[in-house]
Design a protein around this nucleic acid. Structure first.
Lengths: 258, 258
DNA sequence: ACGGTAGGGGCAGAATCGTGCAGGAACAAG
DNA sequence: CTTGTTCCTGCACGATTCTGCCCCTACCGT
């Protein structure tokens, strides 16, 4: 059962590699090995063959798109921000095998779902249909969807029913996506119901980490989700020396570089 | 095992394989053998013949779509069967403005979601994250997602929690997707939990219509969902003069041509 | 220059493939 | 109703492919 899914066929794995290349703009052999659940040798072999076929350009430690144009047309539905992928990869590393994780909605959380190792055995709770659909690809991950009224803008379940459903959950970790991480305004988002939902989720997890790609740092939206000191840390690819980051550091926030 | 389901002819099984390929984006010989109840050798032979016919691309351990372009993530949600689109259009026409509709999971239901008029004002309840995400594009549709454990194969919420969540819903119409519409076996699907969920949804709607594209008519899967006389009708693009359709008509089933 | 890391090749085990063979069911002809 | 044919299916066997690990060499960063 899990055998067949773990035992990814070479051809299919290469399809994934190419798709991944379009998404991230580059391929790192080490990460790929971990996330696909195969040895680095196999990834190396795949990259070698793909390079031989002219589909990728081999570089030390990984591969790049064969032609610069190939990497560009990725923007089908999401902005291919490499920083977001890095944040997602670090966040995925926080997920301990066997643990229960609440995964927020939004494009960054979706990237986290895709960055989870293919053979990871864990339980993921999410109120995002999009994230849930993505996790259907991970045979070892038990997925629980929280139901409720769908908030169309970010495609997540919100409202009283969703908050109530969240109350029945207990998790080790919550990976929270926001639109603003500000040293005074704290963590903010653009919708009141969404903020309440995120708050309810945070209350059900032992630890909360914020997915804070660079463009979020120093920004503030309309509705407060949580104060900064309510979370265990912020995962970000922003320049640690930048003003916004220093302000956060002064506020005693733990920053995890991505 | 039930003879009729196990003893399916090779031709029919290949139809299932092709549909499965469109759904999953890949075919794994081992899984197929287990799920279809035949030996791996037979699956291998089918894959070999399909590859010879140019319908699939053979790879080690399974098969991929013949054209690499249709194998990606996007194609997985694409409904490439024209008949399915016709069924979906007819089904979408059954949705009255202002009414409340329960929409099932699966590729056909997804096609229905996309076939709904862009300016439709209605309420849609679904246990499919994929369908919910698609409906986020419809600003006039109020979407309620039913939560629960995610059944990975068809990407729908199932289990006790989902059934319980469904109990709180009252709808005018339920558009039900199944894998088999058989004059004796009734409406069937491939998973027991999924069958229970569909049953729970049918109980909450005043009327149930079945999304029965041609390849489903006359087929039977392992688990019974409902008897044929429990539904108001079957929407299908199958030949009304065909044997399977005539058998259904003899059973008193209302067939809506698509 | 040196330690650490990545790449290439070989090797053994495991999984998969292709083929031949025999049993059984469906079907047509007698 | 019986018989012969055809097709499908499952099992067994050898051939092929894939994978992970080892070792050695080449390259990168300090």
């Amino acid at each position: 059962m899990k055998k067949s899914a773990t035992n990814m066929h070479a051809a299919h794995r290469r399809e994934l590699l190419l798709e991944r290349l379009r998404t991230d703009g580059r391929l790192v052999a080490k990460d790929l090995a971990r996330e696909l659940g195969v040895s680095e040798d196999s990834v190396r072999r795949d990259l070698r063959d793909l390079a031989a076929a002219g589909l990728v350009q081999r570089v030390y430690g990984g591969a790049l798109p064969a032609s610069p144009a190939v990497g560009g047309y990725a923007a089908r539905q999401e902005v291919s921000v490499p920083g977001k992928a890095r944040v997602a990869r670090v966040a995925a590393g926080l997920v301990t095998p066997g643990s229960t994780v609440i995964l927020d909605g939004g494009t960054t959380a979706l990237a986290v779902a895709r960055a989870l190792p293919a053979d990871l055995r864990a339980t993921v709770v999410t109120h995002s249909p999009t994230v849930a659909a993505a996790l259907a690809e991970h045979p070892g991950v038990e997925v629980y969807v929280l139901g409720g009224r769908l908030f169309k803008h970010s495609v997540v379940a919100c409202g009283a029913a969703a908050v109530e459903a969240a109350a029945g959950v207990t998790a080790d970790l919550f990976l929270l996506g926001v639109t603003g991480v500000h040293h005074e305004a704290g963590l903010t988002t653009g919708d009141a119901d969404e903020a309440a939902m995120k708050r309810a989720l945070a209350a059900r997890a032992a630890e909360t980490y914020v997915l804070g790609s660079a463009e979020k740092i120093g920004a503030a939206s309309a509705f407060a989700v949580l104060p900064l000191d309510a979370v265990a840390g912020v995962i970000t690819d922003a320049d640690p020396g930048g003003g916004a980051c220093r302000a956060l550091a002064r506020a005693g926030i733990r920053l995890l570089p991505a």
